[in-house]
Design a binder for these strands. Sequence first.
DNA 1: GAAAAATGAATGAATACACATTCATAAGTC
DNA 2: GACTTATGAATGTGTATTCATTCATTTTTC
Lengths: 195, 195
Amino acid sequence: MRTSDKHTKIIEAAITVFARKGFFSARISDIAKEAQVADGTIYLYFNNKYDILISLFEEEIGKIILEVKLLLEKETDPRKMLHIFALHHMQLMEEKKELAEVLQMELRQSNKFMKEYRNTKFIEYVDVVSAIIHKGQEEGVFRKSLLPGVFKRAFFGALDETSRLWVLSPDHSYTIDEAARQISDIFISGIMTDS
Amino acid sequence: MRTSDKHTKIIEAAITVFARKGFFSARISDIAKEAQVADGTIYLYFNNKYDILISLFEEEIGKIILEVKLLLEKETDPRKMLHIFALHHMQLMEEKKELAEVLQMELRQSNKFMKEYRNTKFIEYVDVVSAIIHKGQEEGVFRKSLLPGVFKRAFFGALDETSRLWVLSPDHSYTIDEAARQISDIFISGIMTDS
DNA sequence: GAAAAATGAATGAATACACATTCATAAGTC
DNA sequence: GACTTATGAATGTGTATTCATTCATTTTTC
């Protein structure tokens, strides 16, 4: 048993501090204070500052993938599956705003300062979308001309940017659920008036 | 006249260095070396490291807005306008990979470490999209139920994420123009098989 | 079961180093 | 030779990381 689970406590503190200040501006002493732990204690659980960030990515994205795959198991209609993915992603970003900020900001530029680190977990997550598209094409529900590699990025990008700004901005003229619905509708049916 | 335009030389060097290392890992001495200028010279043209980044944002996004607005002037069909925006954005990211990386990575988290800085130029850019949607709704071409505030973010996010990964990854099974076409098609017509 | 010994988790002050910024000096320009 | 522009070594600050020490808990001994 991890004694009183300091590992988790530090990860959670790091999420809060990285969200507030960004990885580089965050000080180890900030994280230590937030976790109610001495600076040195952090080095009993992590090798260095980067290691905290990587552990955070792996563990948290791992959880997200498990969750969404579980939800998708119950559904077979590719259209509904896309909506489930959208809704789950957006709700998650809303529920865990701090985690959302860290993933959206730091994850993307992590390859800049950590040369060796390949974020396979993140790729695995986005590939859930391309699997849905592939299934839809097999079943003749989605156009065969769609490039799943383009679609997964476009769909993920749309969700991520929308939730990112929703979390940032204070005025909410629409709910997260509405936004998720709009986005999956746009992607599934387009935006033209029915004719 | 800015003497031999060192200002521009430094901005261009900064784009290269920030793209390679990210803002925080980039050293002033790296930028100076890239610009073939002494470290101290940079402080004759900019107040500090942050100031280089802000100037870079303002000047480069300013140029992009002018360009795309000029292109859009010639077109009145909102569907075609969306495609023009998409294509221009993607082509730009391809032509100026380094600038693309800096804008995509650093712009988004700039509000973290520069508390006071509000990026109005960026908002202005994305609002070009919501203006197109609004026009399309007025003309009855786009559904009235669309929320322009959601759409602009989703559309921009889709373009940005797709071009981001296209620039990053070495294998290109599709061209930038194909990707732009796919994305505007998806948004305009959806992904369902024609029935 | 009380006292002694061993353990290792936790601490936080001290260290070491990287790097943004300054400024005395030099080079260029008219 | 006065003024502008450029240089790059020196300075100072901030903070990641280390490590000698503390102390609560567990194990051993009688």
